[in-house]
Amino acid sequence: MTIAKDHHVPRFKQTNAGKIKIKTWGKRQVVMFTTFLALFLLTVYGFLTFDYKGISFVQAVTDTIYNVKVMFFQPAMSHFTFGEALGQVGVTIGLGILSTIIGAIISLFLALFAAKNLSSKTVSSAIIIVITFIRAVPTVLWVLIFAIAAGLGSEAVIIGMTFHSIAFLVKAYSEAFEEIDEGVLEALRAGGANWWHIVTHAVIPSTTSSLLSWTFLRFETNFTVAVAMGAAAGAGGIGFELLMASNFYFDLREVGFITYLILIVAIAFELLSTQLKKRFLSGTSMS
């Protein structure tokens, strides 16, 4: 064994008991440990000092279980027909599609200028900073901000969701563009092609499939956001029905029905997107 040669300086650390340590306590570990300990103690303290306002814990749990049971095991419609429900889902899907498509078109152009290999450093950094800021603020807030000008309703929701979609898609698209083989761009440039030629003949064709799958992913997100926005910002659609059923009629069975409906639609989109991915990305690596 060659290791034995320089044995006079042991490289391993030992515990007091003489066992070899395999973990060392760096600054990182200390910070992590202190944080966890503090959170744990706060949680225990919190539970000990809750003001339960006379609610019986057992009663609360049984009631909740009963509610959940009614919601999910006895779903029913009482304020609309199945056809109307589907129509409302259609409205929600429409909100999702519209904001995704408008967002995707604007993002495509912005992303070209945000990609470091296609744009100048200043322009790219400027776009990325703005985009990061927009993305950091939740969609709901953007909707409420635009509601000041557009009024609560579908207009504000579309603008707000489009805004956030752009922030998301520009990042996704520009990263896809940045992964393009630099040599291809060089080859076209060496042949005398200009920037727009390179974009349309090399950049877009090489990234179509990943652009499409990012867009569809965003559509799935926008659908679920549109459900919430229907309730929160009065954009209509199935989300609004959900709000009415739960807060206005206190109809738990209807809440259950709507939840299942949304779930089914979401699963359908998920399946569709896997199918699309299989079809468009098969054979070629999604590099």
Binding site: D181, G183, A193, T208
Partner: peptide, 24 residues
Amino acid sequence: MIFQHYNLVSRLTVIENVLHGRLG
């Protein structure tokens, strides 16, 4: 110009790649 790694747009057809030479 001709390159070690060919630098073709791999998702496009041969003829499309050849015509890229006319973009100039």
